[in-house]
Write a protein that binds this DNA or RNA. Structure first.
Lengths: 223, 223
DNA sequence: TCCATTGCGGAGCGATTCGCTCCGCTATAG
DNA sequence: CTATAGCGGAGCGAATCGCTCCGCAATGGA
C-alpha cells in the first residue's frame, strides 16, 4: 500500500506540471483562436504531447469543462475581494475592472459548446448571488443608477469582455499597436462606468430577465 | 446592337435578382456563422446554385469585398442622415444607435480576412471624416465630454456591434429569449450613451491613435 | 545490471468540411 | 428543331479536426 503510493511519486510531479501547463495553454489558445481552438494547438502551446493531454482528459469537452469550473472559481474569488471594499461604488467597479483585466471572458466561446456540469451550475449560482449583493449595496447607497439590475451588469460584462480589436491585432502580430489598443479599451471601460452612475436618463424597457443567462446554457423552456 | 441587348434581357433579369439575393444571404449567413461562413451556406440561403455564385464572383473573397464596399456606403449614408440633425448631441446618438441597429458590424469578421481594395480605403476615409465632423460639432457645443475623440467613438462602436449573447441565442434557436436579449442590449447602449455625456471623470491615458484602425487592415509600419 | 512499470511524444486514421470546378440540364429565341 | 445563355449541384483535392495507438525514455527495486 505504502510502497504503491511511493512508487508513483516521481512521474506524478511531471504529470501535475503538465496538467497546469495544459490548462494555462488552453486558456491562451482559446482566447486567441476562439471556438476553433484545436487540441493540437493547445498541446503544442503547453509543450506537451497530444497523448499526455488525452491521458489526463478523456475528451476535449472534459478539458473545457474543467477550464470553465476553474474560471467560475475565479469569478467567486474576484467577487469576494471586491465585496471587502468599504465603499459600495468602489466595490462594484473593482469587480468589473478586475473581471475585465483578467480576460476571463475569453472562454466565452465555450458557453453553449460544452454540456454544463452540476459543478458549473453550482458555482454559477454562487457568483450570481454574490454579484446581486454587490449591486444591492450600491443601489441602496445611491451610487448606482437605480434602474440597473445585476443582470444588466452581467450583460455589460459579457459585452465588454470581448476585445475584438485587441484579438485581431494579436492574430496579425501587430504588437506595435497593442499598447494603444489596450489603452483605448480602458477609456471605453471608463466611459461605461460613468454611464452606470446616477442619475442617468431612465433605461429603456424593463429590467432584463435572469433567465437570459441560464437559458443559454441549458434548455429550461419546459419550466 | 439593339437586338443584342434585347436578346440578353430576360435571363439578365434573373441574374440580377440572384445577385441581390446572394448579397442579402451573404450578410445573413455572415452574421450567424461568423468567419466560418461557407459559400455553400450562402448559396443555399439565397436559393441559388453554387455555380451561379461563382459565375458572378470569381472567389469567395471577391464576394466579401463587394459586401464590405456596400456596407461602407451604408456608413456614409447613416452619417449623412445623422449630420442633418439640428441638435449636435442627437446627431451623434442618432448615428450610433442607427449603426448598432442595422447590425452592420456583423461583417466585422471580414476585417483582416480579405484584402482591402482601393475602393474600400476611399469609402473608409470618407466615413472617417464625416464622423470627425460630428464629434467636433458635439464637442464645440459642450454636449460631449471634452476628452472623447472620434477614434474613441469607433472603438466604442466596434465594441458594441458585437452582440455575443444575441448571436448565441440565435444559433441555439432560443427565439423565445431573443426579445429579452435585444431589450437588454438597448439598455446597455443607453448606459454607454450616458457615459459619453459631460462632464464625466477624466478618461485614462491620452487620446487613442488614429492608426489603431487603419493599421489592422494594412501594414503601414513602414511609414 | 537488468527488467517491469509508468508516463511520454507524436505519426497517422477516419471523418468532416472547405473552396471551387465542371458538366448535364432547362428555358428561351430564331 | 437547333443554338445558346444561364442554371443547379455532384464531387474533387486539400485541409483540418478529434482521437487512437504504439514505440520509447526514464525511473527504481531486485
Amino acid at each position: 500500500m505504502d510502497t504503491a503510493r511511493r512508487r508513483r511519486a516521481p512521474r506524478q510531479a511531471e504529470a501535475e506540471r503538465n496538467d497546469r501547463e495544459l490548462l494555462r495553454a488552453a486558456r491562451e489558445v482559446l482566447a486567441e483562436d476562439g471556438a476553433h481552438a484545436s487540441v493540437a494547438a493547445i498541446a503544442a502551446r503547453a509543450g506537451v504531447g497530444i497523448g499526455s493531454l488525452y491521458r489526463r482528459y478523456r475528451t476535449k469537452e472534459e478539458l473545457f469543462q474543467r477550464l470553465a469550473e476553474l474560471s467560475l472559481d475565479q469569478w467567486t474569488d474576484t467577487l469576494e475581494q471586491a465585496a471587502a471594499c468599504d465603499d459600495p461604488w468602489e466595490a462594484l467597479t473593482a469587480f468589473i475592472t478586475a473581471s475585465l483585466e483578467a480576460d476571463r471572458g475569453s472562454l466565452a466561446p465555450i458557453a453553449g459548446a460544452v454540456e454544463v456540469t452540476p459543478a458549473m451550475w453550482e458555482k454559477h449560482r454562487r457568483a450570481d448571488r454574490q454579484l446581486a449583493g454587490l449591486v444591492e449595496r450600491a443601489t441602496a447607497a445611491g451610487v448606482l443608477r437605480p434602474d440597473v439590475t445585476a443582470t444588466d451588469i452581467w450583460v455589460l460584462l459579457e459585452q465588454l469582455t470581448a476585445a475584438p480589436m485587441i484579438e485581431q491585432l494579436r492574430r496579425q502580430g501587430r504588437t506595435d499597436l497593442l499598447p494603444a489598443a489596450v489603452e483605448a479599451r480602458q477609456r471605453t471601460i471608463a466611459i461605461v462606468l460613468d454611464g452606470l452612475r446616477p442619475p442617468g436618463s431612465p433605461l429603456p424597457g424593463g429590467p432584463p430577465a435572469e433567465t437570459l443567462f441560464t437559458g443559454r446554457w441549458a434548455d429550461d423552456r419546459h419550466r
